[in-house]
Each structure stands twice: as structure tokens, then as C-alpha cells.
Amino acid sequence: MTLVNYQAMTLKELRRYVLTHREDISAFHAYIDRSKSEGRMITINPNDENWEEQIQQAIIQDGDE
């Protein structure tokens, strides 16, 4: 089995890798950890009446990058 260096990948490359290697749980964890550390993860409060708008804004911002 080939060892993959997740740290050498950009976040975009790592995302692509995770999507094509869905069985690689270590890659998934690396992606989530890196996304959190780079401020790419969002949290919502379902009790907030504007939660849908927050998600839409996050999607728009993600598409701009």
C-alpha cells in the first residue's frame, strides 16, 4: 500500500483525493482537521431563523475561492 502525504496537498487537492478515495478514513480526518484549522468549517444553529442564509453565504464564498 502506498503512503499518501496529506500535508503536501493543498486543501483543494486533499478534498479531491477524499472524494475519489472515500475508503481512506485517514484522508477524511486530515481534510476535516485542516478545514477546521483554516476556518473553512461553518457551524449553524438550527434554532436561528437565518441559518439557511448563513449556509448560502458560505457556499457563495467557497465558490469564489
Rank of each mutant, 00 (worst) to 15 (best):
R16K: 11
Q56G: 05
I25W: 03
D62S: 14
R15S: 09
K12F: 06
E38L: 11
E49D: 11
I25C: 01
Q57S: 14
D62P: 00
T20N: 10
E23N: 04
E53K: 06
A27N: 02
L11V: 05
L14I: 07
L14N: 05
Q61K: 15
H21Y: 03
Q7V: 05
I59K: 13
R22K: 07
I25S: 07
Q7L: 08
Q7I: 04
T20V: 03
R16A: 15
E49Y: 08
E53W: 08
M9P: 08
I32N: 06
Y31H: 05
I55C: 15
N47Q: 13
T10A: 06
R34F: 02
I25E: 06
K12T: 05
Q54M: 14
Y6G: 05
N47A: 14
R15T: 12
E13V: 07
T10Q: 13
Y17S: 08
A27C: 04
A58F: 10
L11Q: 07
L19T: 02
L19F: 00
Y6A: 04
F28E: 07
R22H: 03
D48L: 10
M9I: 11
I59P: 05
H21V: 03
D48K: 14
R40W: 01
Y31K: 05
W51K: 01
Q57T: 14
D24H: 09
Q54I: 09
D62T: 13
E49V: 13
D48Q: 11
E53N: 08
E53S: 13
Y31A: 01
I42R: 09
N45S: 14
H29V: 04
K36E: 08
R15D: 11
A8Y: 04
N45V: 08
A30G: 00
R16C: 03
D24S: 05
E23I: 04
N47W: 06
L14R: 01
Y17I: 11
I25Y: 08
E38T: 10
K36D: 04
S26K: 10
E52G: 12
L19K: 10
T20K: 12
G39A: 10
I55F: 15
S37D: 13
E13F: 05
L19N: 12
L11M: 07
H29P: 00
Y31G: 00
Q61D: 15
G39H: 10
I42Q: 09
D24V: 00
P46W: 14
V18S: 01
E13G: 08
S26P: 00
S37L: 06
I44G: 03
L11F: 06
A58V: 10
N50K: 13
E49R: 09
I42N: 05
Q57L: 15
D62I: 02
Q54W: 07
A27M: 03
I59R: 14
S37G: 01
Q57H: 14
N50L: 07
H29E: 07
E52D: 10
M41A: 11
P46G: 09
R34M: 06
A8P: 10
W51T: 04
P46S: 12
M9H: 10
